[in-house]
Amino acid sequence: MRLSSRITSRLVVSPFVVVAIFTFVLCVLWSAQLSFTSSKIFPAYDYVGFKQYTRLFANERWILSFQNMLIFGICLISGALVIGFLLAVMIDQSVKWESFWRTVFLYPNALSFVVTGLAWQWLLNPSLGLPELVRHLGWTDFKLNLLGEQKTALYAVSIAAVWQASGLVMALCLAGLRGIDGEIWKATRIDGVPRWKTYLHIVIPMLGPIFFTAIVLLSLSVVKGFDLVVAMTNGGPGTATEVPAKFVIDHIQIRANVGLAMAGATVMLISVVAALAPWVYVQKRRKEARG
């Protein structure tokens, strides 16, 4: 009886396993395989060794895209963590209309990156958006063109991303804060420790796993980041806000160079694995520790 139910359950699961293996494992392997060929529009199987990778890392746009991804990642992760945590702390002070604020702060996260990108593009437009508002308020020679300058455009994109992602970090941190034992607060109060010190030295270390989860989630959205950039700047001005995912898509769709695109995709995959590895490692250690 027991054996047959186990077989049934395996039978039920098996189609999904097949689909998963086919779509994830095989397709990933196939992409990696194509990166060693000179494929243009159609897959070709003339192996050219590491030629596409040599070209990839000699390509300034790719290098720039990768640098942009790192800068964007640092800005987004640090910005979202700080703002998200502060919002959570604020809401945790038993404010009035708590659920209202929670919804407001979490709401941007429900929007797609395309909507966020377009909205912020309008907000930052030098002749329509916030700069125009400031001029109307009296500072008539106020000038701000974050999206139009190569040096600042990437930070403008980061601001929009932080706006969107902070709500998620807030929700995670709030869950963590609510999980902290009330006794700890009582104990620190009796000892006369100031609240901010309690947050800094006791609460933040206790929220470690939460921060870790947030960092992993945010890093993934950084690596696959595409839609926000396309909606906000389309990689411009010039190539100032290019990102790796856009490089890959452009080379598949417009430039008919699947080989080079797959080399880029493979490097992205490796960076995702590198971002996930510490998390997987920590999880495993924890499981072992629990026995």
Binding site: K40, N59, E60, R61, Q150, G236, P237, G238, T239, A240, D250, H251, I254, R255, A256, N257, L260
Partner: peptide
């Protein structure tokens, strides 16, 4: 020229046009 080359050249022009 191939789409690959015309695209790569376009990257160069736009970088120059927008660079200081």
């Amino acid at each position: 020229a191939t789409a690959d080359l015309t695209g790569a050249l376009q990257d160069v022009y736009t970088t120059y046009w927008n660079s200081t």
